[in-house]
Design a protein around this nucleic acid. Structure first.
Lengths: 110, 110
DNA sequence: GGACTCCATAACATCCTTGTTATGGATGGC
DNA sequence: GCCATCCATAACAAGGATGTTATGGAGTCC
């Protein structure tokens, strides 16, 4: 039932860098090329390419090739595994009904 | 609204190591001494002490001192911030109603 | 074919992380 | 006072992470 620990290692490590989280947030808006992902980041293109390798290793990103367009695509399933682990601690958060509670409750909404 | 990026760096980095996740899971069952936390782990006591320093730096653990008993206590609030970030991707998980959906929905239950 | 763009990889430097062993401080029991 | 236990810290080694510049491959356009 519990996710593969090594997988969680890779996912949490991937999320531990702000540039990589920025990449994931950008990919949540749709696939993008490496060039597009690198543009807003204050690092060189090879650095972004290696961040993508880390994300790919965590199963969070897949890189395709369609002609000259090589899109990076988000695969959020490993994020779900990470969330499963974290949600196990929800009883230790503040118990008041607040923004996150509302957000979580949306899953149950129509 | 969004959590401090540097805080998220520290939290996700803290979660990226299986020993530290094991420590958090243990502390979810109640406070414990460093000795108790180190016992089931295959590393030395100083290694555990430094894992605790990492967790403390992420705001996930506080170390007290009551006489000769120095308890480590879980503070799960930073985990909530991490979950907030992750839940932003829930639309990209499999959409079928399943175990995690049920788990998240519990937050809204009486 | 030639030039251009997009991207990966190599080679390198630097800092961080994780582990070890050794050691000493603080506290409690005798 | 003296010893034992619990724990932090120092000092060190080894490997990983992150960045750079340089370079070359693959595909497109003229």
């Amino acid at each position: 039932m519990v996710a593969d620990p090594a997988r969680l290692d890779a996912v949490f490590a991937a999320l531990a860098h702000p540039h990589r989280r920025a990449i994931l947030e950008r990919l949540a808006g749709g696939e993008a090329s490496v060039h597009e992902l690198a543009a807003p980041l204050p690092v060189s293109q090879p650095a972004v390419s290696r961040h993508l390798s880390v994300l790919e290793g965590a199963g969070l990103v897949t890189r395709g090739q369609r002609g000259t367009y090589r899109p990076c695509t988000l695969d959020a399933h490993p994020l779900r595994e990470a969330t499963e682990w974290l949600v196990g601690f929800r009883d230790f958060w503040a118990s008041s009904y607040d923004a996150l509670d509302a957000l979580l409750a949306e899953t149950d909404a129509p």
